[in-house]
Design a binder for these strands. Structure first.
Lengths: 237, 237
DNA sequence: CCGAATCCTTATTGATACTG
DNA sequence: CAGTATCAATAAGGATTCGG
């Protein structure tokens, strides 16, 4: 009852036999910024059935690309994380894929589309403009309904990007992944999002937030075009 | 009737919506070394139904990753080729994938596995050891049942790798893709393959062929291990 | 609640036959 | 040769259930 595979003497075919099935690379993406639980994965991947997730995790574990780690009691929960091999071999694939994918990304997205946390974090990484950030220091904590993540810029370099909270944040933001993504790609402005009530600054001030999000930009047409539209503050939900 | 897609605001998801379906990247691989006809693709991708090939080609063309070109009469046949965007965005993906895939490649392959021409050519590219080739010059032409391809090493650098014949070859080899692949990864020796009748040297001599294939090696365990087995010339079919 | 396993429906695929 | 049309086999999606 082996999985369907290409049965070719070909490195690409072998790779696709391992990570080419639906959802496999999406699951790997979810693990890039840190270990995640089964239910985290399920929540961040709408449409993925629980049976398939279990299957894919097993396949990835057997391929030694991820590992299951059982947290010490009393946590009593297991987390999945990328193995060293997984990080080394999957990250280049995902990087090359996202380079292609951004050329098809539309913003704003068709309604009903989901904005995963890890995609928002990926945008922070991919759209960061180092040249704009020279000498900049900022420790930012993001809070969504279900996740807390952090981004640290130290002397113009992004030194931290991952889950969890910060000891001494300069800025603590509360909002949905939609809003955070909109701010990163430049579709949304801090002022408008605060006026909407979609963005809450728990710690720090709006000026710091403006300065932080100014460090990011998508180089692609759809977003540049939409960026201009933000001159007129929009009230879209 | 739109294709199933992930419906996420995520560059990886967008990329997978475009090239993540079964066979899509395999078709792209077939176009790396030059334009190919519909029937070439079908022949090199056993198991791919003709309806699916037609569908995938349409999808890739719509995504502007490939283009259909109609050859001038009297050829009267159409070929598919990678577009500039296709080459720029798909080659990094395929490269990253093959880096993963070689770690799972087994040699010799389970029986019934197919050795595509483009995979053999890919092996020539991937396993070429520049350090071993310093000052080497060699123009090699390969003939299989259905294809002719060439590889030129000039002053230790691989300058040509693609379909078609050479004006002044130093070496012309006739054999199956299986044999060529075995020679490239070091599983098969020129002497044994000639003795078997599986390799025919139409032009040039065995010594040149030995010197040429000595330029290649797979760095991975399965092949290294098997390489040692070739000390005992095998008679496997 | 977490981490699956089981059923059942729907969508995609693979193989074959057929057409301009 | 370059596809379309058809249909059976398979895999994915969704709801529900079950054991720690």
């Amino acid at each position: 009852m082996s999985r369907r595979n290409y049965e070719q003497v070909c490195a690409l075919a072998c790779a696709l036999d391992v990570v080419g099935e639906r959802w496999t690379l999406m699951i790997a993406r979810e693990l890039i910024f840190g270990p995640r639980r089964y239910s985290d994965l399920l929540r961040q991947l709408p449409g993925l059935g629980t049976n398939l997730l279990a299957q894919r995790l097993k396949d990835l574990e057997q391929a030694e690309l991820i590992a299951q780690r059982r947290l010490p009691p009393p946590a009593a929960s297991a987390v999945y994380e990328l193995s060293a091999k997984g990080r080394e071999s999957l990250l280049p694939i995902i990087r090359a894929m996202t380079d292609l994918g951004v050329t098809y990304l539309q913003y704003p997205p068709p309604s009903g589309h989901f904005v995963p946390v890890s995609s928002t974090m990926g945008a922070l990484s991919k759209f960061f403009q180092r040249e704009q950030a020279a000498g900049f220091f900022c420790r930012v904590e993001f809070h969504t309904d279900s996740d807390v993540f952090q981004c640290v810029i130290a002397n113009g370099v992004m030194t931290e990007l991952g889950f969890g909270s910060l000891a001494q944040p300069d800025l603590v933001l509360e909002g949905s992944t939609d809003i955070f993504m909109g701010l990163v790609v430049g579709y949304e402005s801090v002022a408008a999002a605060m006026a909407n009530g979609q963005l809450n600054i728990t710690h720090g001030d709006a000026a710091t937030a403006e300065a932080f999000f100014a460090l990011f930009r998508s180089p692609h047409h759809p977003m540049v075009q939409l960026n201009e539209r933000t001159i007129i503050p929009s009230t879209n939900s």
